[in-house]
Design a protein around this nucleic acid. Structure first.
Lengths: 157, 157
DNA sequence: ATATGTGCAAATTCTTTGCATTAGA
DNA sequence: TCTAATGCAAAGAATTTGCACATAT
């Protein structure tokens, strides 16, 4: 068996190669901005807004618009996943292809932790029983993280 | 006991009175747009965007901006709840104060059904165990409703 | 009487689009 | 070579804000 057939490579450089191959196979061209975006998304973790991504790219790499367009393309072929934290800005993360997961977002500092499990499978089943097809869901959790609790308590002394 | 102390009146006119009382007690003034908005939200069901709400109000009732400002006020005192269906437009619904619930949104026709139960209590508990406080969540389900399945099948004949 | 709410216009923020130019395959 | 990708500017959509005027209490 060829290792390139592996659905979800574990190491970062393999992930990048795999992603670039997926990009090419889908008929997209491999360009510097796309390579840089994938590289960034694979190495740095936690979902980023289009603006954050653009600022983290090597300066002068590309126009902000190109980031948006690239993200749309990458989302289309499921290399990245779009997250909606309800603050009017989408965040994007690399789609490892592993199981579905969710986020815990701190309302104060916007830090994000990943919950490594999906708990809504039963709910999706219920909705399918209601007659719906193509069922998906979004589930995000919000709270105040430990750091911010400490910080807020200190600030109010 | 006074019936006005009841947390969640079941009938529409009681709900309106109760809501107006809450509004006043919170220090807000009872104005025609706010009364009309609450009335609409209590009687018509399914979450509405600010624009939909404005179009459904008696014409000339108020400026669209007033709808936004009223919704912010009503949300603040938990008379309405803001829903995010990930399409770039918030929807608002009257907060009956009853148990938490979720929506099933048809991706084709944007119809909304309500799921009368909350399935994420265990998940919130887990997140609290991770150290977070003020834990909340958003959970929405998406699919293709029965009508749209039929319609799409008919269209492709 | 006085603070709160409203209308109108304009600003903001995030995202998308049009079009001429550049550059992958 | 030839189509897809990019940069720049501008459009779009939803929402928010500033300020003078109107109105609920």
């Amino acid at each position: 068996m060829d290792a390139s057939h592996d659905a979800s490579p574990a190491c970062a450089s393999e992930r990048l190669n795999h992603a670039l191959l997926t990009l090419k196979k889908a008929g997209y061209r491999i360009t510097a901005p796309r390579r840089a975006l994938l590289d960034l998304l694979i190495h740095e973790h936690g979902p980023f807004s289009a603006d954050e991504l653009h600022r983290r790219l090597p300066s002068g790499m590309c126009d902000p618009v190109t980031v948006y367009r690239s993200l749309v393309a990458l989302e289309e072929i499921h290399l990245v996943r779009r997250c909606d934290f309800g603050d009017g800005t989408y965040r994007f993360e690399f789609n490892t292809g592993e199981h579905h997961h969710h986020h815990v977002i701190c309302r104060q500092c916007s830090s994000v932790e990943t919950l490594d499990a999906c708990f809504a499978a039963g709910l999706e089943r219920l909705v399918r029983q209601m007659g719906y097809t193509n069922v998906t869901h979004t589930l995000e959790l919000f709270g105040t993280c430990v750091c911010c609790q400490t910080r807020l308590a200190a600030g109010s002394r």
